[in-house]
Nucleic acid binder design. Structure first.
Lengths: 219, 219
DNA sequence: TGTACATCAGTGAACGCGCGTTCACTGATGTAC
DNA sequence: TGTACATCAGTGAACGCGCGTTCACTGATGTAC
């Protein structure tokens, strides 16, 4: 997961040198500063100079570790992946009977958590990926693929048991469910105006998840 | 729908003057140039100077019509709304029996069309809205609300006929379906690598739509 | 334990570029009589 | 129908600012003996 691909597992400076513990701290400080800035302004008005200021270091230092602001953002997106296991655990839970809905709820909760924590970074990741940037596409795929594949497996099982229609393409359906989950946190803010609570939202998403994955009706 | 809110229905220059036909053309040329630039680069690297160059006019002219690049983007997002009626027509179609699936398919098709046409602008609209920008939130709401409300109505009807569980909040469910539709076109590109065709995708989305709106199973 | 040296890490200061923005102006179009 | 004038629309050129980027340098840390 280095900033260059040339020496896997080792974080490196732009020069290709392996970083010592002190350097790693400075680098992380720059990343944290970037994340913080992204929280309250748009990517559009964030500069290297500003990041350096916030991290209490100089722009020259920034360039030791990152080519530009985009690359720092990419790193942040990579770090965000590390929480996904929490979501995976949920999916592996039981989908049988009434407990299936609880499993679906657990997934929705874990996802919402993930998004609330990394809101700004994930939005940019998705924008860049949707705009065709390969590196961001890969990061997003790495984050979502395990989740989607497991969901697709469940759907396939349900199809083989004739609970779910063959009209649905398992992976495409999983991806569609993924997009609901990704939008959850954005909706939370907006739907509050319509008197829809966080719980309503989670229940509703879980309900759709449950219905599509198991092919069974709720209630 | 003017660039200022002060005189509704009339497009105005920054000075507040109502525009003549010649001025309207110039303004539209600037908007078109912006849309074109957004198509092949990120918003991040689009400048007033560049837009003016592409529109074969001067930066000074740009400032006659827009405060900044963001405002031009906002206008483009407003113009994109005008196609939504095509989607609405679909929703008002029949949801009964086997024709329900065709209706769902029509919605997915119309939405995909909409996104393929305005890809870049809609991405930015959503990013800005998700980042909390009120003006972009309003534009997005104006575009989606009619669609979501109609979907929510259908879901409510199905609940009253006891076809759909009360666990789903009608409007929240509609919003969730909306997020699938919005992601459709982004997925189209990425899922192609997994051997999922455009039709698979539309069928799958339509399937989920049908299932959630009517509460019935497919096949 | 102390000293010399090598490498790692960080930075001050400067440069130049390109952009945002504005002003005073010119040219185009419309209207009155 | 022609002329004078008012308003609309567009622009060349300039200014200043702030950012990206780099270089030559200093200070910190580690290591050999």
């Amino acid at each position: 997961m280095g900033s260059q691909g040339s020496q896997p597992g080792r974080v490196m400076a732009q020069t290709g040198r392996v970083l010592g513990p002190r350097a790693l701290k400075t680098r992380q400080r720059l990343l944290d500063a970037t994340a913080q800035l992204l929280r309250d302004r748009s990517v559009l008005d964030i500069s290297v100079v500003e990041i350096a200021r916030k991290a209490e270091t100089s722009p020259a230092t920034f360039y030791h570790y990152f080519k530009d602001v985009e690359e720092a953002t990419l790193q942040l997106a990579r770090q965000a992946i590390e929480e996904m296991p929490a979501v995976l655990e949920q999916i592996d839970g039981s989908w049988d009977g009434a407990r299936g809905f609880d499993t679906a709820r657990g997934i929705a909760e874990a996802f919402l958590q993930h998004w609330e924590t990394h809101h700004a970074v994930l939005l940019i990741r998705n924008l860049a990926a949707d705009n065709g940037d390969r590196r961001f596409q890969k990061v997003r795929r790495d984050a979502l693929a395990p989740v989607l594949e497991r969901l697709a497996d469940r759907i396939l099982e349900a199809q083989e048991a004739s609970h779910v229609s063959r009209t649905l393409h398992p992976f495409a359906a999983a991806a569609a469910l993924g997009s609901i989950l990704e939008k959850l946190s954005a909706h939370a803010g907006e739907l509050a105006h319509r008197g829809i609570s966080r719980d309503d939202l989670i229940d509703t998403c879980a309900g759709i998840l449950f219905q599509v994955v198991t092919g069974r009706s709720l209630d």
